[in-house]
């Protein structure tokens, strides 16, 4: 199980041939209380760096970008009724979507957990 991170604070966790996408704990803390999550439809083709979802805090709407290219295979319907799950458990129950991975090399190019923690330290 490999977890990688983007500079935009999304995580992507590869399990078998699908990957789970969400936002990091740092990201949920920066956003503050999440009140709405707009998820893509299953089957939507995502392009690395393109908009995959929108997360809204009380203050503002933020785009969630696809960490890699692929296709949406599942979305977390629980977030519709309980968006605060993103704050409570971002790495677990607060996931946004599951996707196929078109090119595993794109995944390898992202930051490891250790590199991401260093990155967060450098910007905070």
């Amino acid at each position: 199980m490999t977890t990688r991170y983007t500079k935009d604070h999304e995580y992507i966790r590869l399990e078998g041939d699908t990957a789970t996408v969400g936002i990091s704990d740092y990201a949920q803390a920066q956003l503050g209380d999440v009140v709405y999550v707009e998820l893509p439809s299953v089957g939507k083709a995502l392009t690395k760096g393109g908009e995959a979802a929108v997360v809204e805090s009380v203050k503002a709407a933020s785009e969630i970008y696809a960490p890699v290219s692929g296709e949406v295979v599942a979305v977390n319907a629980e977030l519709e009724s309980a968006p605060a799950t993103v704050n409570e458990d971002p790495a677990g129950r607060g996931w946004f979507l599951k996707m196929s991975v078109k090119d595993p090399a794109e995944l390898e190019a992202l930051m490891t957990e250790e590199q991401y923690q260093e990155f967060v330290k450098s910007i905070s």
């Binding site: 503050g32 209380d33 009380v58 203050k59």
Partner: peptide, 12 residues
């Protein structure tokens, strides 16, 4: 201050 540690919903 935009918010304190408890967050906007709790403050509201």
């Amino acid at each position: 201050p935009v918010q304190y540690p408890t967050g906007i919903l709790t403050e509201h």
